[in-house]
Amino acid sequence: MTELLQNLIDGLGRGSIYALLALGIAVIFGVMHLLNFAHGELITISGYAAYAMFQADFSWYVVAPAIVLVSIAASLVIEWVAFSRVRGASDFTLLLTSFGIHFLVSSVFILYVSASKKQFPRPGWVTNTFAVGDLSIEVFDAVVIGVTLVTLLATVALLQRTMFGLALRGAAEDFDTARLMGVKSNSVIRGAFALSGFLAGIAGIFWLMRAGNTAPSAGISPMLSGVIAALIGGMGSMRGAVLGGFVLGLAEVMLRSRLPDGIAPLTDGVVFLMIALLFIFRPQGLITVARAERV
């Protein structure tokens, strides 16, 4: 029981970051049917920005908010430079464009910084733990879960209560009809990229705090986790993406602590294999977007 509870907390901590990443991917998929393989690059770019700021002796208190701003800006620039030029193109073109950007961003860092990892300090409290009964909880996990909850609530409020949120949801459901209502396609797509960048920025803070370094290929891992989580939830469903993130986090933690020693290093592989199987049996993901039949 204790072990299960421990797993649950660890899994929620890990899953929080995935949920934020997956939600950012689902938002973009909703408005332009683009599965964004370049999403992880927002963390790569933020990572280098953080590295530069640490070189200039800034502290995490300054760097953390800066990461969010950099991530939003990067998301908008990528949209402006590339994705705005392939709007409405085939899925094949959209997928390869985002894959190309993923590669291009990492290449630029190899060209102008270095192919090797750049280290920066991790905040001292990242590895601290505190005990609740028999449970040992990482301060880091507690903070991540807390901040993620606040971020998700803020995002829900944005989507439910603001006109921008309505426009975004409308565009995700039926882009043409939203335009007929006066929703500006440029604004809503840019808004979606800004929101996606914001979510990636929050996730990025914690991703980078835990890693304590960045590298040109740092975007692959968060991208894969985010994409997989979004797909577990059922592509296009924002609720599903968040759920998918937590499911992925929990699955990883559960497997890691239960797989026999010989296979434990293969946890990620096993998780992905399970996901592939899930797809084979439920191609639509866990959550089927429950739409009433249009008559």
Partner: peptide, 23 residues
């Protein structure tokens, strides 16, 4: 324009549909 087949936003409430109309 009231489009053919109505094309209301089925995942949103009635009120939200109307709000989008007045965006």
């Amino acid at each position: 324009l009231v489009p053919e087949h109505r094309r209301i936003f089925v995942d949103m409430t009635v009120e939200e549909n109307l709000k989008i109309g007045g965006i």
